[in-house]
Design a protein around this nucleic acid. Structure first.
Lengths: 370, 370
DNA sequence: GTTAGCACTCAAATCATTAGAGTGCTAATA
DNA sequence: TATTAGCACTCTAATGATTTGAGTGCTAAC
C-alpha cells in the first residue's frame, strides 16, 4: 500500500487542494482552477505536470481524458491520514448544529437519539449497534405467581438488563415452595455468567428442585434469553434517505442496494462485522474505510468508532456517506458523541446510587427533535 | 363520486381490458391493442369511440395526445369495486410463494414475520402496526428487592404484556414492608384499567403506603408506561426497496419521499391514522386507497386490513405499491394473513391454559426465511 | 351502429453540430 | 533546470434538427 512515500511538499499541497475542492463541489478539478485558487503561484502548466505525476502514483485519477482530476481511494486515504486538519480537534464540533444527547432512562431510546443526532449533524446515514453484552452476570432472579397456572420469571442481569418469561404450570404452587425455589435460584445463580451455568450446575439445581425441575429449566432458558436477544444484535439507523442528497449515490441501482442493506439488519450486521476486524489500535479509536475497503460498496466511505459503556457493554457507531464526505466533520462528531456516550452513562451510574434519577430523566426525551 | 353509473356492458368490458393490460405492462394501452387482444371483435375505430366516452366520464385518461389510455384513480376504484375477479377468493392465495406464518412466542417477532411474508409475496412494501392496547387491565403487580438500593417493579397486564422498572431507594426496605406493599398494590390495582386509576385512588394508596409513597408513584408510572410505550405505536415495515421495482416510483424525488416516510415511524403513523378514519364497514374488512385518497402520495395505492387478536389487541396491516398494483393478489394475501393471524393467536390462547407451549414454540423462529 | 381511411399530433429516438473545459506536448524563457 | 506560454487535440455535455411510429379524431362510406 505504501510504495515509498515520495511526495514532495508541493505535490502534497496540490493534492490537498484537489481533494478539498472536490469534497466541496463534487466536480473534477482542473489545473487552471488549482493555479488560481491556491497560494502556490504556479501556472496551470506546472500544475498539470505535477498532476500527471500524482496520477502516475495513483493518488488521483481522471474520469475521462478531457476532464479534471478526482481523488482515488488511495488519495482519500492519504488525505485522511496526513493532510486533513486534525489539530483543529480541540474546537467544539460545529457548535450551531450540534445537538447534545439528552439523558434518558432507556438505552434503546438513547441509541435512537444518538443516530438521529449524528445523521442530522452530518447529512449522511448513521448507524449504531446496540451494546453487545459480554460476560454479564446474573444479579437477581425472581419467580412470582401471577395466577394458579402461571409463574412469572424475572431475571435481572448486570447493567440492569431485565428479561421476563411466563411459565405455565399444571399445578398451583404454594407460597413456601415458591420461596424455596427463589432462594435456590438466587443462591446458585447470582454472580454467574451464562458460561458459568454448565450441565453439572443444572443437574444439581434440578435435583434440588425435585418435582419443580421443569420450572428450573424454564428459568435457565430465560437467563439464556437475556443474552440471546442481544445476539441478534440490534442496529439502529437513521438518515437513510440522506444518500439521495449525493447524486453519485442516488441512481436507482446504488440507492436500492444501499437502502436494502440498511433495511436488512442482518446484512448490515455483516457489514459492520467485516469492517470491524481490522480496526485495532488506531489513533483516536476512529476508523475510516474508503471505497474498496468495504465489501460490495465501492462508492461509499464508512467511518466508525467503538464505544464502551463499561460493565461489558460495547458497540460500534458509524456513519456512511459518499467517498467525498466531510471526513473532518464526521470524525469530530463521532469523537464528541463517543465521549458524550460514556460520560452520560458514567454519570447515570454514579447518580443511580444516590437518587432515583432514572425516572425524572424521562421527560427530556420529548424535546429531542429540532 | 358516482354520477349515474351509466356504463354499458361493452364499456365495462373495454375498461376491464384497459386496466388489466395496464396492470401488466405499465404502458398506456391503445385502441388497436384492445381490438386485437379482446374477444369483442370490434374494430379499433369503434373502440376509439368508446374510449373517448370513457375518458369523458373520467375513467381513463391520456398521458399526452398521441398516447394510449391509462386508468384514472376513478377507473381503478371502479375496477377494484366492480370489475375485479373477486369470486376467485376461494382459491388458495398463490400457494407456491405463500409462506405460512410460524408460531412464535413473541408478538414482536410474529409481526416482523408477517410483514416479511407479505412483502415477499407481493413485491410491494408492507407495514403492520403493533396492536394498540385499549382497555387492558392490570393482572399482577410485583415489587422485589434487587439489592439494598434498588427495587424492581414488574407489572403484568392483560394479554401478558409485561413491563419492568427499576426504582432507586434511599433506605433498604425490610421484607415485611415489601410484602405489605405488594399486598396493597395487588389488592388495589388488580383488574383495573389505566383509566380507572384516578387521583382519588392514588391519594388513597399513597396515604396507606405512608413513608413509601414515592415508591407507589413509581409503580403507577410503570403501569402507565405499559400503555404509553404502545402509544408511540410501533410500526414494522418490510420491502421498502421494492418500490425501486416500479419505474414510476423510483425517481430520486419520489423514492426519497416514500422511503423517508417509511423510515420515520411518526410520519408513517400519521399516514395510517389519516387513512384509517374512513375505513368502516366495508365488505371483507379490506380497504383500498388509491392515489389522491392518500394525503401527499398521489402516485401510490395502499391496501389495508384491520386485525383483531382479541383481548383488546387490534392493529392495521397494509401494503403500499404503485397504483397499478395487483390488487387481486394483494387482497388475497391480506385476507389470508388476517385469518392466519387470528387463528394463531386463538390456538395459542387455548394452548396456553393447558401446557407450556410458549416455550417449545421458540425453535420455530429460526426456520422462517426461505 | 360500425368501420375504413386518412390527416394530424406528439414523445422518443437518432444523429449532427457546437461549445467549452481540460489535457499533453513543444518551444521559449528565466 | 524548472517554469511557463501557446496551441493542437480530445472528449463530454448541451443543443437542435430530423425521423419514426404509435395513437388519436374525424369524416365518409357501409
Amino acid at each position: 500500500m505504501s510504495e515509498e512515500d515520495e511526495l514532495t511538499v508541493r505535490q502534497k499541497k496540490i493534492l490537498d487542494v484537489i481533494i478539498k475542492n472536490y469534497l466541496e463541489t463534487g466536480e473534477p478539478v482542473g489545473s487552471r482552477t488549482i493555479s488560481k485558487s491556491s497560494d502556490l503561484n504556479l501556472s496551470s502548466a506546472t500544475i498539470r505536470n505535477e498532476m500527471s505525476d500524482l496520477e502516475d502514483m495513483g493518488y488521483i485519477l481522471q474520469p475521462h481524458t478531457s476532464a479534471g482530476r478526482i481523488p482515488s481511494d488511495k488519495g482519500y486515504r492519504f488525505y485522511v491520514g496526513e493532510l486533513m486538519n486534525s489539530q483543529k480537534d480541540t474546537s467544539p464540533p460545529d457548535s450551531t448544529s450540534q445537538m447534545l444527547v439528552q439523558r434518558t432512562d432507556r438505552l434503546e431510546k438513547m441509541l435512537k437519539q444518538v443516530v438521529d443526532v449524528l445523521a442530522a449533524n452530518t447529512n449522511y446515514t448513521s448507524m449504531i449497534s446496540a451494546p453487545a453484552i459480554t460476560g454479564v452476570r446474573v444479579k437477581f432472579v425472581q419467580l412470582s405467581a401471577v395466577n394458579e397456572h402461571q409463574l412469572l420469571s424475572v431475571v435481572v442481569m448486570d447493567g440492569n438488563a431485565v428479561r421476563n418469561r411466563l411459565i405455565n404450570i399444571d399445578e398451583p404452587l404454594n407460597n413456601e415452595d415458591l420461596l424455596k425455589l427463589n432462594m435456590l435460584l438466587n443462591t446458585n445463580l447470582s454472580g454467574l455468567t451464562v458460561n458459568d451455568i454448565n450441565l453439572a450446575l443444572i443437574k444439581k439445581l434440578k435435583s434440588q428442585a425435585g418435582e419443580y425441575a421443569p420450572i428450573i429449566e424454564n428459568v435457565l432458558e430465560n437467563v439464556a434469553g437475556t443474552i440471546e436477544q442481544d445476539e441478534g444484535r440490534t442496529i439502529y439507523t437513521s438518515g437513510t434517505t440522506n444518500i439521495f442528497k449525493y447524486p453519485e449515490l442516488s441512481d436507482a441501482n446504488r440507492a436500492s442496494h444501499l437502502i436494502s442493506t440498511f433495511e436488512n439488519k442482518e446484512e448490515l450486521e455483516n457489514l459492520v462485522n467485516e469492517i470491524e476486524t481490522d480496526d485495532e489500535g488506531n489513533p483516536n479509536g476512529i476508523s475510516v474505510f474508503i471505497g474498496d475497503d468495504i465489501p460490495n460498496m465501492p462508492d461509499v466511505s464508512v467511518v466508525t468508532a467503538k464505544y464502551d459503556l463499561g460493565e461489558g457493554f460495547k458497540g460500534t457507531i458509524g456513519i456512511l456517506g459518499p467517498k467525498r464526505m466531510d471526513y473532518e466533520n464526521v470524525m469530530k462528531n463521532l469523537k464528541s458523541l463517543k465521549k458524550q456516550l460514556s460520560d452520560i452513562v458514567d454519570s447515570s451510574r454514579i447518580g443511580a446510587k444516590k437518587e432515583p434519577k432514572r425516572i425524572e430523566a424521562k421527560k427530556d426525551i420529548k424535546e429531542k427533535k429540532e
